[in-house]
Simulated assay, not measured.
Amino acid sequence: MLKNIICKGMQMKCKFCGVSEEKYFYKGVCRNCLTLSQDVAKIEGKRRQIKLNLPFELTIFQANLIKELGTAVKQDVFIEAVCGAGKTEMVLPLLVAMLNQGKRCAWAIPRREIVIELSDRLKAYFPELQVVKVCQGFTQCVTGDLVVCTCHQLYRYRHQFDLLILDEPDAFPYRDNKMLEHFVLKSLSETGHIVYLSATVDEAMKKKIKNKEVKHLTLPIRPSLKLLPVPVWRLSLIDNLLFCIDLYRNRHTKAIIYVPTKRQARLLARCLMCPFITSQSEDKEAILDSFRNKLKGFLISTTLLERGVTFEGINCYVLQADQRVFTHATLVQIAGRVGRGTQNTKGSCYFYSKEKNLEIVRCIENINAHNQCACSVLEV
């Protein structure tokens, strides 16, 4: 471990994770890296002849963005596309082109659950490729034709990737995490570039766009060509009475109920006699698979399911939407779970809180602004 410490005068810096604050070091050892293996994975690039056969046709708006992406990828790119716009599918043609040239590619995502879901989707798209998922519980094989991993696992790949797709860079735990940012940058080859994907833009990305460090591409409309569902705010003062009434009215539908804490998730699930999922749930994949296979029912969740997951025909309820954990970006992402897919499945989103705070207002304004842009695009 000591070989990874650079000393400049009295200041130390970890060559492995990049931290330099004194609090992270003990007797010259970086405590951030004590649990990390320092074996460097080696990815071999080889030319291929992959063809992309999507099970559906892309819209003209998606196709135009794909063309822009193909010319812009000589630098880092940020694709800002609304929830359900098909960000994954729009990046696939670029991924195919890079792999066919023998370039080394990876897809990094902040959260483990989305790594597992996305890697299965990519295996279906590319059955001839060895798509490896690298995250907690899946670290036996860390090399393949295409790596799909959490941002934490990028520490294994030093100067390896010519293309890194970084999904949801404004999501926890990547947002404002200097160590993970260091892992991302160190995973790139000398000529490597990043394609960022998200429906929401944080301050760090706004700064990159302003300084022209990234090429900014946007898509304000879903493949269904329907507008985004706008959340409905409802005043909730007395024991969430309106929420209970709405649940009764929609008892024959499928819904995710978001709550601010793990404790509330457990208590509400007990009251409603339905499953719940949090970051501490041990059987997350089984819970999600079971919920997907149901035609109706409720699932209680923390912000764990705010992004990256798709369920057909659901409603979304956010209880205590004025709590700090529900930022405007989080609320936008939660609302984006509704009405996804090319068939524009029906669904509604409701925010319940004692007040309509700034984050709720910003969320609704954001969605309305995207809908206005979509209307302008459709009129052209």
Rank of each mutant, 00 (worst) to 15 (best):
H159C: 04
H193G: 07
V230E: 06
N32R: 15
I194W: 08
G339A: 06
H182A: 12
E113N: 09
L92S: 12
R292K: 13
T88G: 09
G339W: 01
G341S: 01
K178H: 15
G313Q: 04
A108P: 09
N32C: 11
A63K: 15
V73R: 11
K296R: 09
F276E: 04
E80P: 01
S224H: 07
R337Q: 06
E312C: 07
Y248T: 14
C373K: 15
V259T: 04
L304Y: 02
V115L: 11
Y258L: 09
V380I: 15
L154T: 00
E117C: 10
H182K: 12
K46H: 15
K3S: 09
K356L: 14
M179E: 13
I60Y: 14
V148G: 00
L225W: 06
F78H: 08
E285W: 03
R251S: 13
K46R: 15
L122D: 05
S376A: 11
T218H: 11
N177A: 10
I221W: 08
E80F: 02
I109R: 11
C83L: 03
W233S: 07
F276G: 01
Q101A: 11
D76Q: 08
P231M: 13
L69C: 10
E57A: 12
V309D: 04
T327W: 08
D176C: 07
R175E: 14
N100K: 06
V201K: 15
L299F: 08
V96A: 08
I245R: 14
M10G: 13
V214F: 13
Q136S: 13
F183I: 09
Q38I: 14
I360G: 01
V380D: 14
D145L: 01
E359N: 06
R121C: 06
C33A: 04
H328S: 11
Q320M: 06
I360N: 02
S224R: 03
L267W: 02
K215A: 12
A41K: 02
C105Q: 09
L358R: 15
Q264F: 02
V377E: 10
Q264P: 00
Q160R: 08
G86W: 05
R234N: 12
W233C: 08
G45I: 13
E359A: 06
K123T: 05
G339D: 03
Y248K: 14
A41L: 03
Q75P: 03
L225Y: 09
Y24I: 07
L69H: 06
H182L: 09
L163D: 10
N371A: 12
M1D: 13
D145F: 01
G297I: 04
L58S: 14
L295T: 10
I194M: 04
E213N: 11
M98L: 15
I60T: 15
Y352R: 05
Q160P: 05
L185Y: 05
C135N: 13
K212V: 10
I256Q: 01
G9S: 12
A369M: 09
C141R: 11
D239K: 12
A81K: 03
S189G: 02
H159Q: 13
S353T: 04
L54R: 03
